[in-house]
């Protein structure tokens, strides 16, 4: 696990909780306790109302595939071993869109709008990343 050589997420203080969540196999979404908005990506202040009264809700981890691309070529050396891989934009049930990878599927079966669900993969002792697979 410690020989992971791909780029790790560059955290901000207000996103710590998110990455603690993925370690516990939970996909957390930042939530504004004042205006009720679900926020992605996590911010220091709510981008809707500038409240600092922010908390977290747990996502059900399900959504639909808004779009995808099967990357086959033209990436940095550290990603080459992964090729081909699928970059995905996923619309979560909680009303936010995240970027991720789509895994555990045959490329020819992928289509926009298919249902997907979250899976987790440990990158290092500190970081667990979130991917999606067909639901």
């Amino acid at each position: 696990m410690n020989d992971y050589n791909k780029p790790l997420p560059v955290k901000q203080p207000w996103s710590e909780e998110f990455w603690k969540g993925t370690k516990r196999r939970k996909l957390l979404i930042q939530h504004c306790n004042d205006c009720g908005k679900n926020i992605f990506y996590p911010r220091k202040y709510c981008p809707e109302c500038w409240s600092s009264n922010l908390g977290w809700i747990e996502s059900k981890g399900t959504g639909t595939l808004f779009s995808y691309t099967v990357t086959m070529y033209g990436v940095e050396e550290k990603f080459m071993a992964d090729l081909p891989y699928v970059i995905a934009l996923v619309d979560l049930g909680e009303g936010i869109r995240v970027m991720s990878r789509l895994v555990n599927c045959r490329h020819e079966d992928i289509k926009c709008d298919i249902p997907v669900k979250v899976v987790f993969e440990d990158m290092t002792d500190e970081f667990t990343i979130f991917y999606f697979e067909p639901a």
Binding site: P9, V10, M99, I129
Partner: peptide, 11 residues
Amino acid sequence: DLQWEYPFGMT
């Protein structure tokens, strides 16, 4: 984005 895109192998 170095946190929310780059780690996935985004280009």
